[in-house]
């Protein structure tokens, strides 16, 4: 997907959520790409807070430069708030028309989760689908190794939650 289309979709999401953190936007776009099949074409790697795309971060920087979003650091020193910017995105009604139903479904399925819950859900998905670990117990074990702060019980619950969402989508 060309950058102008990606930016149009990201701006649509930011416009809907009004105040969205960087972890949240990374994870929502991740699920949009991998579960709801919106073809952003982003590469993801496993980073501190779960799957992370440098290209998505670059798009956000470009959007910030063009004043299509406004980014403010959280006073705590951890995380950022992304708000709609003063400049509109050149209307790409065609792309939004094509994907708005998937975006809305994704926001409905994942929008309710806190950033740390999204982090666990996306990490589970990455371990299974991107890193190719097929066995359920190994997926949970690897996720627990990557996210020692989360209890195994919480990770297991997140695994079930993710599977429910996936089956409802397919």
């Amino acid at each position: 997907m060309a950058q102008e289309y990606r930016i149009a979709v990201i701006r649509y999401i930011v416009g809907k959520l009004r105040d969205v953190g960087k972890i949240r936007i990374q994870k929502l776009v991740y699920f949009l790409q991998w579960i709801f099949k919106v073809p952003f074409g982003y590469d993801y790697r496993m980073y501190h807070y779960g799957p992370y795309s440098d290209e998505l971060n670059d798009d956000l920087i470009v959007m910030q430069l063009n004043k299509q979003v406004r980014v403010e650091a959280d006073p705590s020193g951890y995380g950022y708030h992304i708000f709609p910017g003063s400049e509109a995105v050149t209307t790409r009604d065609d792309i939004l028309e094509k994907y708005s139903s998937q975006i809305d479904k994704c926001l409905e399925a994942f929008g309710k989760f806190e950033p740390n819950q999204l982090e666990v859900l996306a990490t589970l998905h990455f371990v299974k689908d991107i890193a190719g670990v097929s066995d359920k117990s190994k997926v949970i074990e690897k996720t627990a190794m990557l996210k020692p702060i989360f209890s195994k019980q919480l990770i297991e619950e997140a695994y079930r939650e993710l599977e429910n969402i996936r089956s409802s989508v397919s």
């Binding site: 590469d43 790697r45 496993m46 190719g132 690897k142 990557l146």
Partner: peptide, 9 residues
């Protein structure tokens, strides 16, 4: 390989 999991990021 960025797709692989590494314990000590």
């Amino acid at each position: 390989d960025k797709k692989c999991i590494y314990q000590f990021p």
